[in-house]
Design a binder for these strands. Structure first.
Length: 286
DNA sequence: TGCCCCCTGCAG
DNA sequence: CTGCAGGGGGCA
């Protein structure tokens, strides 16, 4: 599911509600979804919630950190106590927040204020990992990540250097390598190429400096637009309150094959690049 | 670097 | 039934 914008949306939603709360209980409904000793979490307070690429981090008291990767179908939904109370005795068929927990619920965190955080993950690709906060710098995946595209260490020059480690690869494929840029996924990689007016099949080493600058701007625009529309909901994504995101209503190419390009009216094409669906406008993107 | 795999469900 | 889905790890 989630790429950078979706995880950012979740981070913002959880940050405003979980700060200072202590964990009272952890229920693990799917063993492979939780790595670590859950009992260590009891009584620990939420200090800070952060995001790096598509990873969500929750810093707790006593040097504990929870790392969460939602992969393709993960959700993190926070249900405040007041909410569940309001519907006590209400209609049991009511689908408020999907009737949690549901068939996809893998882990449930309960807090001192009786709020519950549900980790749902239909495909079970996602995971929650408990580590010592000091070991974050030793986490292989985190340390190898490329620059945050919305951060200040990301420049056309760094994009160029990182892309050129993949000579001969199509740009859209290279953009999915998290060591090149951190946080792009299949939706925003296609959208970034459209924004840059670049054919996703173009080899990274054929880009001029001007085209690289367009790609740099195109990446940032796609991600910012994603965040401002609450993320992309294809099938699974919901924010921390269970609400969908509407970026795909504003997308230029993703999921729009055989439709008319919003800019030039040409027909959007779909092809497979490294087995991933890739959408582009053959007229706008060269 | 490319392919298969993890898993579940839905659309065609 | 087959193919496909916001990701990425392991293997040759």
């Amino acid at each position: 599911m989630p790429e950078l914008p979706e995880v950012e949306i979740i981070k913002l939603g959880l940050s405003s509600k979980l700060g200072g709360e202590a964990i009272k209980k952890v229920d693990i409904l799917s063993l492979k979804s939780f790595l670590g000793e859950p009992n260590l979490l009891i009584g620990k307070k939420v200090l800070k919630i952060w995001r790096r690429a598509k990873i969500l981090g929750i810093n707790l008291s006593e040097n504990l950190t929870i790392l969460i990767h939602l992969k393709m179908s993960g959700q993190l939904i926070l249900v405040p106590r007041a909410h569940s109370q309001r519907f006590v005795g209400g209609h049991p068929t009511e689908d408020m927040l999907g009737g949690l927990p549901n068939k996809s619920t893998r882990v449930v965190f309960e807090f001192d204020n009786d709020a519950k955080l549900y980790f749902n993950d239909q495909r079970r690709f996602g995971w929650i990992k408990l580590i010592n906060s000091k070991q974050i710098t030793a986490d292989e995946f985190l340390t190898q990540l490329g620059p945050e595209p919305l951060g200040k260490s990301f420049h056309p020059k760094t994009l160029k250097e990182n892309l050129l480690r993949h000579k001969g690869l199509p740009i859209k494929v290279a953009l999915l390598d998290q060591t090149v840029v951190a946080g792009l996924g299949n939706i925003y990689a296609s959208e970034a190429c459209f924004n840059a007016k670049l054919d996703p099949q173009r080899k990274v080493d054929t880009l001029s400096d001007n085209e690289l600058k367009r790609l740099y701007r195109g990446i940032r625009k796609a991600l910012k637009d994603g965040i401002s529309h609450g993320g992309s909901t294809r099938a699974h994504f919901v924010d921390s309150q269970g609400q969908k995101g509407y970026f795909l209503d504003y997308a230029f190419v993703y999921g729009l094959d055989k439709k008319a390009c919003k800019v030039c009216k040409s027909i959007i094409k779909k092809l497979q690049l490294r087995g991933r669906g890739t959408y582009y406008c053959p007229n706008c993107q060269k």
